[in-house]
């Protein structure tokens, strides 16, 4: 695979690094109790959101999960409004009413996330149905975890999307676990790609977290989708570095070993792509990211909390 031009690499690095550092800051702030929201960090999994979103147009649509900071940021939604949401502030992307599990930014094409696993997969299909009717070549992407593939709606949505040739890319972020339960205790076979393919759509896996390989694959698949060939499926293997929910590591719990973490850290895409960029350029990008994060935290700290009168607003449209 040929290496993308430097401008692309810098953009990809910037996105990877922003997500990594922003979530590290969330974890750092967390013990202060300023964030009163369960946080499901994507640290270690950033390359999927970034590899996919960098292959999209700005007017495409993505749908993420409660582990959604990465998809939200990779699609270009603003960090300060995410931080404010975690802080329960009025300036948050959901006005302090959704929290970390329900990030949303319709203007940036980030559909609202759900804390009920799998429930947003058919919603992305609904958006894809509308995009198909619109006929401008836009596509939708549905991100979900390996656990979500066990829900009935996963199978039902694959079938419907294939039946209607919807411009929908299914992206399974397979980190090997649903909370603490490994796929071996939940799946009779690992042949997820085959399962998806049997509905009648291209289906491929990226097994090593390679952000550039994933991006190249998505560029290829999405090209066809824009032309009306119908949905496609990607299984992106990855690894969650922190606990399922919360800011810490959890290797002492015994359900998985630190060895696995070390293997994934050895191919960390933030480090890898950073290494492709000249040190001075990289330092400038890093510095800009730190400034952005500091400003976002300031924004969250300084923003007002929602007025109690807002308790019932938006219950109905």
């Amino acid at each position: 695979m040929t290496r993308p031009p430097m401008a692309d690499l810098e953009r990809i690095y910037r996105s990877l690094r922003l997500i990594r550092r922003a979530e590290e800051e969330v974890a750092r702030v967390y013990p202060s109790d300023k964030i009163k929201s369960p946080v499901h960090l994507s640290i270690g999994q950033e390359s999927i959101a970034v590899g996919v979103c960098d292959a999209l147009r700005h007017d495409d649509i993505v749908s993420g999960t409660y582990r959604g900071h990465a998809a939200y940021l990779a699609k270009g939604a603003p960090l300060d409004r995410m931080m404010a949401e975690l802080y329960g502030k009025d300036t948050g992307c959901a006005r302090g009413k959704g929290g970390s599990m329900h990030l949303v930014d319709m203007a940036q094409g980030v559909l609202g996330a759900s804390a009920v696993v799998g429930t947003t997969i058919p919603l992305a299909a609904g958006f894809a149905l509308a995009l198909k009717r619109e006929g401008k070549g836009r596509v939708a992407v549905s991100f979900f975890g390996d656990g979500a593939t066990e829900e009935g709606v996963f199978a039902e949505s694959l079938n419907f999307a294939a039946l209607h040739r919807l411009p929908l890319l299914f992206v399974c972020e397979n980190n090997g676990y649903a909370i603490h339960e490994p796929t071996a205790k939940r799946w009779a076979t690992n042949r997820l790609v085959e399962r998806a393919a049997s509905y009648g759509m291209p289906a491929e896996a990226v097994n090593d977290g390679d952000v550039l390989a994933l991006r190249a694959l998505v560029i290829r698949l999405v090209e066809g989708m824009r032309a009306g060939t119908g949905p496609a499926f990607v299984e992106a293997k990855t690894y969650r570095w922190r606990e399922h929910v919360g800011p810490n590591e959890d290797f002492e719990a015994g359900y998985r070993g630190r060895r696995d973490l070390e293997a994934w850290q050895a191919t960390d895409q933030v480090v890898r792509i950073g290494g492709m960029i000249a040190p001075a350029r990289r330092a400038a990008i890093d510095a800009a990211i730190e400034t952005e994060i500091a400003a976002a935290l300031q924004f969250a700290e300084n923003s007002p909390v929602p007025d109690p009168a807002q308790l019932t607003t938006d219950t109905y449209a």
């Binding site: 009163k36 929201s37 329960g88 502030k89 009025d90 948050g92 302090g96 009413k97 959704g98 929290g99 329900h102 909390v305 929602p306 007025d307 109690p308 807002q310 308790l311 019932t312 219950t315």
Partner: peptide, 16 residues
């Protein structure tokens, strides 16, 4: 519960 969806912001959750 207040006749609305449960919010996350502590200032609202308290009133819920």
């Amino acid at each position: 519960f207040a006749p609305t969806t449960c919010p996350t912001a502590p200032s609202l959750e308290h009133a819920f």
